[in-house]
């Protein structure tokens, strides 16, 4: 039986927490029921190509899902002005998300728009009895986003900003170091702990290196310029190590966007 891929979804809510970000909530029982943390939708944005956007949260009962969008180009600007009631064509849910089920504790490490899909991870952890720790990095307190939601949803949070006006000065990688140090000091069992990172490449690499040093599993969500989102056009490739150690091209959209950090060629 063919699987429906394109949906025309109504926007039911639009929030704009600050000048840089908009959160849109769509009605789609199908996507809300199927989506897993780390997956994305490819949204028609009144431009030729769709815009791939990570899913921020789902309300499976109400059949709703939300995405967070940073306004940074024409496509995202077009999306940011859409109002409730408007219908949008989107493809989804797409890609492979975070694999969370073998872990007792998940530390999300997010920077910039990367915090949106990681909120979905925290939501999932809360619902599935996994201890969630949220580490978020922002440019400044004024540009911070979802801090209240992370505080409510995760078991513990740690916020950093480049401007130095939040708890920790620096990026999420710096905040992660403190979280890992605390866990080691408490002699926590890290064998079933996962670091789930999404954000700027340098931040994810720092997270992956810290994870490796501490013997913690790590998955990262990669991003490349994308077109189809379903794996046919081969434009969004990233270099990964295959099982035999050979360098190969993986498709961010269909093989990822989430990869084991150990497989990523930084």
């Amino acid at each position: 039986m063919p699987q429906q891929i394109e949906f025309r979804c109504q926007i039911v809510k639009r929030q704009q927490p600050n000048a840089s970000f908009v959160i849109l909530t769509f009605a789609s029982p199908e996507i809300a029921s199927l989506a897993m943390p780390g997956q994305f939708v490819n949204i028609s944005a009144d431009k030729f190509l769709r815009r791939p956007i990570g899913i921020m949260s789902v309300d499976r009962e109400q059949g709703l899902f939300s995405v967070g969008i940073r306004i940074q180009g024409e496509g995202t600007l077009n999306l940011s002005v859409l109002q409730p009631g408007h219908y949008v064509s989107l493809l989804g849910p797409l890609g492979h998300g975070f694999k969370l089920d073998n872990y007792d504790r998940v530390i999300t490490v997010g920077g910039g728009t990367g915090v949106f899909p990681l909120f979905f991870v925290q939501q999932y952890c809360q619902e599935h009895g996994i201890e969630g720790i949220a580490v978020c990095g922002y440019r400044s307190a004024a540009e911070s986003i979802l801090t209240e939601e992370f505080t409510k949803t995760a078991c513990a949070v740690s916020f950093a900003s480049d401007a130095g006006d939040m708890t920790i000065a620096g990026h999420a990688g710096h905040a992660l170091a403190g979280v890992i140090a605390d866990l080691i000091e408490k002699k926590a069992d890290l064998s079933r702990t996962l670091i789930a990172a999404c954000g700027p490449k340098i931040m994810m690499r720092t997270a992956a290196e810290q994870a490796a040093a501490a013997g913690i599993s790590c998955q990262v969500s990669l991003e490349e310029r994308m077109a189809c989102g379903v794996g046919v056009c081969l434009v969004c490739v990233c270099k990964t190590k295959g099982s035999d150690g050979e360098i190969e091209n993986s498709r961010c959209c269909a093989d990822g966007p989430v990869f084991d950090a150990e497989a990523v060629v930084w």
């Binding site: 431009k47 030729f48 190509l49 490349e224 310029r225 994308m226 077109a227 056009c233 081969l234 434009v235 969004c236 490739v237 990233c238 190969e248 091209n249």
Partner: peptide, 20 residues
């Protein structure tokens, strides 16, 4: 063939460029 380095796609008016 592994193909070219990324970015391999550039959107433009009424279409796109690719360099896969």
């Amino acid at each position: 063939r592994l193909g070219n380095d990324v970015p391999r796609v550039a959107e433009c008016d009424a279409g796109m460029l690719n360099s896969v």
